[in-house]
Design a protein around this nucleic acid. Sequence first.
DNA 1: TACATGGTTCGATCCCGATCGAAGCGTCCT
DNA 2: AGGACGCTTCGATCGGGATCGAACCATGTA
Lengths: 225, 225
Amino acid sequence: MYEGPNIARVAAVIGERGRAQVLGALMDGRALTATELADAVGVTRSTMSSHLSRLQQAQLIAAESQGRHRYFRIANADVAELLEGMMGLAQLTSPQQTFGPRDPALRKARLCYDHLAGELGVLIYDGLERQGSFVHRSDGLTMNDSGWSLLSKLGMSVARLPQTRRPLCRACVDWSERRHHLAGALGAALAARLMELRWAKRVPHSRALHVTAQGEKSIREIFAR
Amino acid sequence: MYEGPNIARVAAVIGERGRAQVLGALMDGRALTATELADAVGVTRSTMSSHLSRLQQAQLIAAESQGRHRYFRIANADVAELLEGMMGLAQLTSPQQTFGPRDPALRKARLCYDHLAGELGVLIYDGLERQGSFVHRSDGLTMNDSGWSLLSKLGMSVARLPQTRRPLCRACVDWSERRHHLAGALGAALAARLMELRWAKRVPHSRALHVTAQGEKSIREIFAR
DNA sequence: TACATGGTTCGATCCCGATCGAAGCGTCCT
DNA sequence: AGGACGCTTCGATCGGGATCGAACCATGTA
């Protein structure tokens, strides 16, 4: 018989329309309340409550209480990565819809958990790649001086990165572009920096990012060869 | 609302005890017949048949007819990777069993789809890593001369690698060791070579690999620092 | 204190899908 | 041909779990 972790339990939790939609909705990294999620999915609060408790028990989401609200978010980056992986597979299987998201704004730029995805995300990754900015070490990808010199043009530096145990860089497969974009702590910091610079801004109630004309121009100047 | 691939469908297919067991059983890369799988999972042929057709429809497994037998295997490396990812997560969630597989043979060395996992798999990856054998390119990990010189001690060379579009190297998270081991085309070739050299041999009806004393000694000499 | 609002718990209903045995269809072996 | 074996299809059964409304708890606000 097979020995190993019990895949079925985790998959069963994800494998229900409502819960999967919850995970999808949270994949932009925001934390949403139970009621918001119930409305988004189109189900009563009571059923949503039951879904949320199952998701939480499976450690796929985490909850945080603030006053009489409870905010739910994706538990951690591992979960986000698994979900991205499933999206990649589901993409292939699904009855040939148009490739990736229909909404052009989503294709252009969106948040994938906490980092930048879509056309611009891929462009940045490619730019860094072309510079030979990535170094592979046993603790994951890291960035060399040539990479940091590019990123310094955005005002980013090693010193300003938050200290976490999370891998610095990760290559995350982009399901709309079918190429890699930058994930990991650095990917998250980059996305945050773009918003800090006001080059990018969240579109309310969507995982899309609105990138200003100026922002896109600057990004292309820095990263496009 | 959420836009993106339909995760729930894929997850629902995996999220059933019987089907998950099938996937687990196939994770050693072998192809098994419907009856073998039915017996392994403990279910009648008819229900297994229904499971198999769902798995196939979801493109998680592929079937091949040989005479009156039908052999089923994991559809492709992408699926295998997703499953490994889920094992990693499931590991965390699961009620604290002993960490990883209980069977020491499985911990020592086993096949993960088509490449080497377990203690020895991690040892080899670490050895290559320590040599700085990996180079990160946009098309994935590749191996430099220093790496190939290590592998040549096993009689492996670039020329003898099968030509595929599959990424040469991948770092696959080992769920028993919680470290990386070598996956991808090169990982597969390496595992094959070990068996060719008779350093390793499949344990029948298990995903465990039996590594001869001589084989383990040689591997350690080459890859341990 | 009363009332509104966010969330969970409970009990009842109901449907999807997992399961099985029997029958059907190929393929291989004498 | 005939029979054995591998596998799938069909119809019927049954159980788990998704769902809802109502009641309940907790935390704010008038």
